[in-house]
Structure formats: structure tokens, C-alpha cells
Design a protein around this nucleic acid. Structure first.
Lengths: 401, 401
DNA sequence: GTAATAAGTCAAGACAATTGACTTAATAAG
DNA sequence: CTTATTAAGTCAATTGTCTTGACTTATTAC
């Protein structure tokens, strides 16, 4: 009787897990509220003044927080607020798109310090990887030129690229993303950069960015509907990005819609790819974003047609998202121009009725998020920062070390 | 400058949080794997043998675990496995449906020890509450008759009822559920029972049941599609039930489908309500379940028509669920008969293509779950047990006490 | 019969949060 | 102007929980 199937269990925790959690809670509180005194932190986190003092002292030694001028407010000793030190940590974010790759260096509070892009060669991933590694190296070098000791404070490299991941030949994107799926990207970049490398799809990256510095800041339940070359949803559930079993949660581009007796993936109806096709524009055009932005602003009728059609699908998608997730808000963001997102939001309204319509709402059901070609790279960088500093269950467990 | 907006922060943790977590991890491991020795537990949880010993000793004192006969396996001292003690804890589960209310008493391992039901008077919630309190009291009394000290080990009362919650007048369910929405149910039952009372929608309860003793046992990502009087999805995400902002996540019955130029809620197309209507059956009929079961088994053509139509909608719903959540599996369960669920599953196949189709799958994409009128009440009871004993983030935090 | 292996215990130690008294620095009240 | 009050923050001792390493016990392999 060799009953040797592996035992499945969650990991336990210990003092270090406790301490790590409390550190993260402090950082999170400072990120959400701005600078706070030790006493404020103690009240907010339910920890004792003494514990907060110890942790703050430690965080200050580590260069993650810094005291500000004392504040007098009423009776009692003035409080000394502590705030996050932006240059306390950095991360590199990398977006791999069809024709281009973008990299940014981001600091602890989500400011982009360096940005750079490069065209991706048509030779496929093995050639592309060289371009990418060069790009990342360049961004790191520039960062090192701006701030001292940046390399020591680099917490990781986050990659964002179109999903879904690990699915055999969907086949309807001829433009090489499939080749990237098979390429050992994480291994190559880990080896090539020496950094901790993480991967998410571009909608998830957009959501991560919104959570760190955008419309989802401080929210526990929000869904970012991301209109890029494809379309996807980034899910913030219980204050964390939800990834699903294989990192493909939210990849709604492949959702089939039935209309006029035939089924079409959502992606073919409401995505920049569909817009490019509608306009007969070459998606490899380097002036793409400017061109689209321009056409949106001057009300190009062909663009308007697409917007109305896409808005109808998005309106229904938002209804469905509200119904399924019961989020605090839905955020519409994209890799295209702000102007396009705003036009889309205008065209989407009024929203379909749903359970999101309730008395006492404070947040709008739908709000605009970041919309520019760099937001995905920013979100990619936000990934490692969140992993390193945000409070979450996994960070408490012993097996996370 | 009175900057007194409340400070938002997550709670910190301390030694007790650590200890509470580790206790829960042990219990969870025993639930998932069956009896385990201290050494096995230490390996599985990453804790030291000594820590495990201390915690097991404590759990044994508390009557939650019990040693079994020593097991010799190869060289070395024989190990002493410890298993959960079923009568270590109990919970009452209560289902409030349109015409009937059901209560069960469930033990730590999810066995139903007592079950009882009562018709709900048409006089509305304030009258109904009396019936419910009597029913609960009766179940508690019967439980006390079966096991000693059951009252001391009662961890709570879980309620399951149709959602969505807190939404003003959807209006299309004339049968009194709306009145229940406005009734202070939690307060009334808390006061009337002296128990810790929790509320979830029926699909969530079904998912909770599947997770404790059913097809989702041990899974971290699973969606239970629940076909009851309405239709809903219970979401197990990251190993926990996901509730959304207002406890309405997964309430997909109100999702609007567009077909033939008009929009219909899913609920009107694939739910027992729609079946009853299709068959012109009175949903208040006490022999309802037997009747439907019978008709399914003998292949009633009218039922078959409904099944085919509902299966088409469910097929698409499953496609959408797979696309959005990327779950390990989808479970079809319901409050009707097993026969109906099995027929539905047969009629749903083959599934639509989706990202769930990947090499190396071990679980089926769609599997049958519990399907009987008592599964929701069981799930309702599973709620408090899960809250009391499963490892989860909130249980670690200081503010959870 | 002896060595090897594995389960489990013992007692001391380390770590991180807690406690309660104390210090410091401001405003409010008389 | 003096004193009381209030609040921030520190100090030193304590507590709770996990860890460490040596030890005991029980079994199989050689």
C-alpha cells in the first residue's frame, strides 16, 4: 500500500510572514492615503504604536519611507508624517506587441522615469528577444544615469503581451504572436537580465496600472475593459489581480457573440484590430496612434461608424461584467488615444440596466482609465512592484520565500 | 485644515493571526487529504514537526482532530495519522426559497445529520420569519438529540436565498422574494437564534457545498453553474468563494441575451422557472421535484424541447464562463433532480471551443455537481464552517477578531 | 544483531508583537 | 502666565509562537 500521491496543503506561516505582512500593510496604507504619522498608522492597521514605530524605523533604514515636516494639529505633540520614497524601488515594464516593443522604468509610486521603444523584427521571437534584451538594457542604463543605486533597488521585470497563453493555435492572429507563445520567453529574459521576471496579458497589465496610479486606486473590486489591438478585461477582485488557472482570466476577446445567425469573437467587433481593418489601415504603420487620434478628433465618419458599432458591443460587455462580477466600477482603458476612449464612453452611454444600479452609489458605473500607448508598459512594471510591496495572502506564507 | 477623511488601510496581524492561520491550514490539509501524520503535515505545510505537534495537540484538546491507528510504512517509527472529527463542529444551513424553506444540520466534514422543511406562508417575511425560526429551532433540537454538546460546537447559521441582494425592484419575480429583500432578515435571525448568521445567494451556496464535499473539493478555480428556480454562478476563485462588492457576483440570471432582435434575461430561458412555465406547472406544487424527475426519466417530449433550448443557452454560458474566468472546471448543479442535470449535460455537449481546450487537461471541462433540493441548504451550512475553519486572508488579520 | 531510517518529543532560543509606564510637545482653560 | 489636558512617540519588560538541535522510540533492511 504505497499511498504516495502528493499531499496537497496550503503553506503555514511564521513570524517572518507576520512581519512581512505588516510591512506591506504600512506601505499600502501610505500609498493609499499619502503620508501618515506613526499614530495614524497604528490606528489604521490595528497594530500598536510600538510595532508601527519599529516597522517604520526599519522601512526608513531600507529607504522605502521618509519623514516629513512635523504637523501641528490641535493639542498634543505634533505628529511626524512618513511618506513613501519614490526612488525606494524601481521596476522595469516591458510591453511586447505585434510590431513594437516598449519598455519603461517605473518607481515605487508609479512614476515613469524612463521610456523607450523599438520595432520588432519580422524574424520571430529568437531575433526579437535580442531587440528586447537590448531595449531593457538601455532602459536600465538610462535609469542608472538618473538615480544612484537604481540597480540595487530594482525589484523585477514585468512583461505584458497579448494572451491567451498556452492555448494551441487559435490561428486567427497571423502576426507572429503565436510564435511568441511557444518561445521560452521567461527563461530567456530571466537569463538575459538577471531579474525576477513576471508575465501577464495586456489587459491585466492595464488593470494593474489602474490599481497603482489610476482609477482603480484603492478599490477592491474593479474591472478594466481594455481596448487594444485585441480586447480584454483586467480583473481586480478582492484587491488583487485575478489571473485564473492559466493566467488567462479576462481574455474575453475570444468570447463568441451570436448575431445574425453566425458567431463572431468579440475581438473581431470591438478592438483596434477591427478598427484598423474597418479603415483599411496597416497596423504596422508607425504613425498609427497619431493618425487614429486625429481622425477621432475631427469626427471622421468612417471612424464614427466603427465607434457606434463597437460601443454597442461594449455596452453589452459592460452589462455582462457588472452582472457577473458585481464590481465597484468598470474602467474603460486602452492602448489607443484618450480621445478614442472618451468618444467610446460617450457612445456607450446610457448603460444597460443591471444590478450595478443601486441607491447610494458613489462611483460612476463606467469611468475612463488610462489610454495611451505606454499604459500597458506601465502596468507591466506595476506587476513586480505590487508583488514586492502589496499585502496579499501568498506573501504571508512560508513557501513564498 | 481638518483633514479628517478616514484613513483606509488593511489590517495588520500578530502572533495570534499566525497561529490561527496555521490551525486552519492543518484542518484544511486534513480535509483535503484525509488523515495525515504530524510528519506529513509538517512537510505539506512547511512548518516544523514541533509546531505541527503543538497545533495538533491543541486541536485534539479542542475535539477537532483525533488520532487513528498507527501505520507502519517501511523503516522508521510508525506514524500516527490524525483525522478530522466529524462531530467537532456543526453548522445550520437554511435555504429560503419561494414556497418552501429547508434547514439542515451539517457536521465538520459536511455530512448532513438533520434535515427538515416547511412551507412558507403567503403572508410575507414577518410571518415567514416565525416559520423559519421554528424550523431552525427544531433542527437544533434534533441535532442535540443525536450528538452531545452540539450547541457548544455550533459555529453558525448560514442562509441561502435567491439574489440579487440590495437591488431596487427588478420586479419580474412577483412571488414575494422582493419583500424578503427589504426584510431585516439577518438581524431577525441573529436575534432569534443567538447564532452567527451569514447570507449568500443560492448559487454561491451550491458552490460552497461543491467545494466542501463535491466536485470542486480541493480546487482553487471552479465555477458552479447552478440551475434552480433562477440561474446563477457560484465562483470559487483562488480557493475562496468570490462575493463581489455586494454579494451579487455570479448572479447571471439577469444577464440580458440579445436574440431575434429583442433582449431576454438568461433566467427566462434557462431556469426551472422557465421550465415550469413551459410545462404550465404550478411552482408551488409540493410534488414538483418528483414530477419533473419523472418526466425527465420517461423522456417527456415537452421537457426535451425545453432541455434542448436551455442547453443551447447553457452551452454558450459555459463558453463565456471559461473565457472570462479560466477555471479548472465548470460544474453544473441544481436544485432539481440529478436526472435533469445529467440530461442537460448530455444535451449541452459538445462544448464550444474556448481557451479551456488545452493539452494536458486532467479535469473535464464540464462535470455534474450535486443536484437535489437539499444541496443549497447544505451549501448554506458549509458557509459558516468554511468561515470558521478554512484558511483565508481575512482570518489572519487583527480586525477579524 | 546491528545499522539505517523515520516519527515524534524535549528544552532552550529567537523573533516579533504587546503592555504599561514614561517623556515630549503642543493647545486649552483659568 | 501657569497649569491641565491631550496626543505622539519611546523605553524596557513581557508574552506568544515558531524554530533549532539534540534526543528517544519504533520499525525495517542487511
Amino acid at each position: 500500500m504505497n499511498d504516495s500521491r502528493p499531499i496537497r496543503a496550503k503553506s503555514g506561516t511564521n513570524h517572518e510572514g507576520t512581519s512581512a505582512h505588516n510591512r506591506r500593510v504600512m506601505i499600502d496604507a501610505l500609498r493609499m492615503n499619502g503620508a501618515l504619522s506613526r499614530a495614524d498608522l497604528a490606528r489604521a492597521t490595528w497594530l500598536t504604536k510600538q510595532t508601527v514605530s519599529n516597522i517604520i524605523e526599519e522601512l526608513e533604514r531600507d529607504g522605502l519611507v521618509r519623514s516629513q515636516a512635523a504637523v501641528r494639529k490641535g493639542r498634543g505633540q505634533p505628529s511626524t508624517p512618513y511618506g513613501l520614497v519614490p526612488e525606494g524601488a524601481f521596476a522595469i515594464g516591458l510591453q511586447i506587441d505585434r510590431h513594437v516593443t516598449r519598455a519603461v522604468a517605473v518607481d515605487l509610486v508609479g512614476s515613469v522615469l524612463v521610456r523607450d521603444e523599438a520595432g520588432l523584427p519580422t524574424g520571430g521571437p529568437s531575433e526579437g528577444a535580442k531587440v528586447i534584451l537590448d531595449l531593457v538594457a538601455g532602459v536600465r542604463a538610462k535609469l542608472a544615469g538618473i538615480v544612484q543605486q537604481s540597480e540595487k533597488r530594482l525589484v523585477g521585470l514585468g512583461i505584458a503581451m497579448p494572451g491567451p497563453f498556452g492555448v494551441a493555435g487559435s490561428g486567427d492572429d497571423p502576426w507572429m504572436m503565436e510564435a511568441w507563445q511557444k518561445f521560452p520567453l521567461l527563461e530567456t529574459l530571466t537569463a538575459g537580465t538577471g531579474l525576477d521576471v513576471g508575465l501577464q496579458n495586456d489587459a491585466a497589465a492595464a488593470a494593474t496600472a489602474e490599481r497603482m496610479v489610476g482609477a482603480a486606486h484603492g478599490l477592491d473590486h474593479a474591472v478594466c475593459l481594455f481596448v487594444g489591438y485585441g480586447i480584454g478585461a483586467g480583473l481586480i477582485l478582492n484587491g488583487e489581480l485575478y489571473r485564473g488557472t492559466n493566467g488567462n482570466a479576462g481574455e474575453i476577446g475570444m468570447a463568441l457573440l451570436f448575431a445574425d445567425g453566425k458567431s463572431t469573437p468579440l475581438e473581431h467587433r470591438a478592438s483596434l484590430a477591427s478598427l484598423y481593418q474597418h479603415l483599411s489601415i496597416d497596423p504596422a504603420d508607425p504613425d498609427l496612434h497619431a493618425e487614429i487620434n486625429d481622425r477621432v478628433l475631427r469626427g471622421d465618419p468612417s471612424v464614427e461608424t466603427w465607434i457606434d458599432a463597437a460601443a454597442a458591443d461594449l455596452r453589452w460587455s459592460i452589462h455582462l461584467i457588472e452582472t457577473i462580477f458585481d464590481p465597484q466600477t468598470v474602467i474603460l482603458c486602452g492602448s489607443a488615444s484618450e480621445a478614442l476612449v472618451n468618444r467610446l464612453i460617450a457612445a456607450i452611454g446610457p448603460l444597460l440596466p443591471s444590478i450595478a444600479e443601486r441607491r447610494g452609489r458613489t462611483l460612476p458605473r463606467l469611468q475612463p482609465g488610462m489610454a495611451d500607448p505606454w499604459s500597458v508598459a506601465l502596468g507591466a512594471a506595476a506587476g513586480p512592484i505590487s508583488r514586492a510591496f502589496d499585502p496579499h495572502f501568498a506573501a504571508i506564507l512560508k513557501d513564498s520565500l
